[in-house]
Design a protein around this nucleic acid. Sequence first.
DNA 1: GACGCGTGGAA
DNA 2: TTTCCAAGCGT
Length: 357
Amino acid sequence: MELFSPLKLKSLDPHNIPEVLDTWFDQNERLMPWRETRDPYRIWLSEIILQQTRVAQGTPYYLAFINQFPTIEKLANAPEDEVLKLWQGLGYYSRARNLHFAAKQVMMEFSGEFPNQYSSILKLKGVGPYTASAIASIAFGEKRAAVDGNVIRVISRLFGISEDTNQSVTQNTIQKLADELIKDSNPGRHNQAMMEFGAMQCVPKNPNCQNCPLSEYCIALQNQWVDQIPLKVKKLKRRSRYFHYFIIQDDSNVWLHRRSENDIWNGLYQFPLIESSSNELNLPDAVFSILGSLSVEMIKSNKAKKHVLSHQDIYATFHHIKVKCLPESSFISSKLNEVHTFALPRLIDRYLESNDF
DNA sequence: GACGCGTGGAA
DNA sequence: TTTCCAAGCGT
């Protein structure tokens, strides 16, 4: 089957794309800690951290993990709390749990030897087709096209694919083109070049097409479709959730609440809260509720995206317990156990840093 | 196949 | 201010 259709254009021969890309990568590759090694453990760790995460955000976490867990064995032997604590603030916490689980998988199911081919790497929890391809190609030189968000964007533009890239049919088309492009390449390097190109040059918004080494190959550019490709049919509307946090403490303790499953921040710790659908909160009811039913699950709702703090400054006294609604900063306690992984860690930091209680 | 999961930066 | 979205995956 001819994947690079001659009918599509007047663009140059797509078979030359990998070489052009390789030259571009020579001149534009960014230095990253995980690019200094072919240790599959480190490649894997970096790939998990970078899922849906920018390099700048993930890099400090990568360094902290390597520092604390230089080998996969040390990671596997650590308590899960310790792994989660190190992940604190990065988001998508199931990645941390799966990371820990997979480390134990490697120790138990692979005798401590990191799996060395796509099919077995794919068995690791938290590793899907993209990540398995990336590890197999970068650490072991296997010819697997790793297709992530960057590659989807680059290929859909180059080949003028205007269909919805959220559809699996479209993704299959893109995967085939990616498979075609990786032939005759150094696969690990080619994959990284594709992703780097998407991240640096063929960016989502306002890419600099006037100064692009692939402009002559780009069907989207020739048709002035660049700002419409890749097409992603938008889904659900966002909704706001309002979390009113309370700090409840006596002289030496602060009340913490552990969130439960089927909602955001599963298993993480936080101050007890009242959730409402608007920014308003009935204080007496809220205080009564928070003190009377801390063990009762708060009302849950789906499709949440944003968490807004109430700024009302509320103060009440129940016996010897002080209750205050948290406006972005509050008071201090030394009794927050370090092993807890907090939702909204920056909020906790502000609490710890203040001295007015 | 649709949905849920986090955070921070950019426009 | 709001919206988008960034090296995806599990259920």
